[in-house]
């Protein structure tokens, strides 16, 4: 990882030979990598390559069956206490937003801080409102998710994850379910978040965003990391045939 030569070697996520099967299907075939504090990594690859499954193992929405994953010094195992600890440190944004439809946007954000962080309601609401301000939809606070647009819902979802004050943010194809004109508003929020120094792992097909924001791009194919490089090297000098093909196909349009 030559591009991080000068960065302090302070990994916040360490993966060692991570394997995962869905029944007979070998989804992850020995992923070994690590991510530094404050690093912005973009993960891309064709569908079915295991990229989503990989970031979902990092907060144990999927269990890995072999190898070790250590997040912020805590190993992810079957220990319930560790899992709950990690989930509080790792925020996640989903492709389908997954906002809670029976709660207002504000309540969506305050649920975790009140129930898990044991904040008082007014503390949590204060934080929630300032986060809504940050993602620029404070006027939608008292509406329900079904009453706002997809782009706005995804921004509420980002605010919900941030409200837990996570050390790491995982994005699982955050713009794939959005209309084209709404993609920008979500990516803008993510750019702002990147500038603030958050550790971010983003599964996305937005190559412009990757080139601009990422410190590092990982290319997944058939459950393995094929290419792992800084954006400049990744786009201009890819090492593998599979990567070259992918880049030529995604940059065509």
């Amino acid at each position: 990882m030559d591009h991080l030569e000068n960065a302090p070697n302070d990994p916040i996520i360490v993966c060692e030979d991570v394997h995962k099967w869905f029944d007979d299907f070998h989804v992850l075939k020995g992923i070994t990598t690590s991510f530094q504090k404050g690093e912005k990594a973009v993960i891309c690859g064709p569908s079915g390559s295991g990229k989503s499954t990989f970031i979902r193992t990092l907060n144990r929405l999927e269990e890995h069956q072999r190898g070790t994953i250590i997040v912020d010094g805590v190993e992810l195992s079957d220990d319930l206490r560790n899992i709950n600890l990690i989930r509080q440190e790792v925020g996640m944004v989903f492709q389908q937003f997954n906002l809670f439809p029976h709660l207002t946007n504000l309540q969506n954000i305050t649920l975790g801080p009140i129930r898990v962080r044991k904040m008082t309601k007014s503390e949590a609401e204060e934080i929630a409102l300032s986060l809504l301000e940050r993602v620029d939809i404070v006027d939608q606070a008292y509406k329900y998710p079904s009453e706002i647009s997809g782009g706005q819902q995804q921004r509420v979802a980002i605010a919900r994850a941030l409200a837990m004050e996570p050390k790491i943010m995982l994005f699982d194809e955050p713009t794939s379910a959005l209309d084209p004109e709404m993609i920008t508003e979500v990516l803008d929020v993510m750019r702002e978040l990147a500038r603030s120094g958050m550790t971010m792992l983003v599964v996305t097909h937005e190559m412009g965003f990757a080139r601009e924001v990422a410190d590092r791009i990982l290319f997944f194919d058939e459950g393995a990391i094929v290419e792992d490089a800084a954006p400049a090297n990744f786009f201009d000098n890819p090492q593998h045939e599979r990567t070259k093909l992918f880049i030529s196909q995604t940059l065509q349009h």
Partner: peptide, 10 residues
């Protein structure tokens, strides 16, 4: 829904 709830630590 379940995943999102688990992801915020519930």
């Amino acid at each position: 829904q379940r995943e999102a709830a688990r992801a915020v630590g519930l």
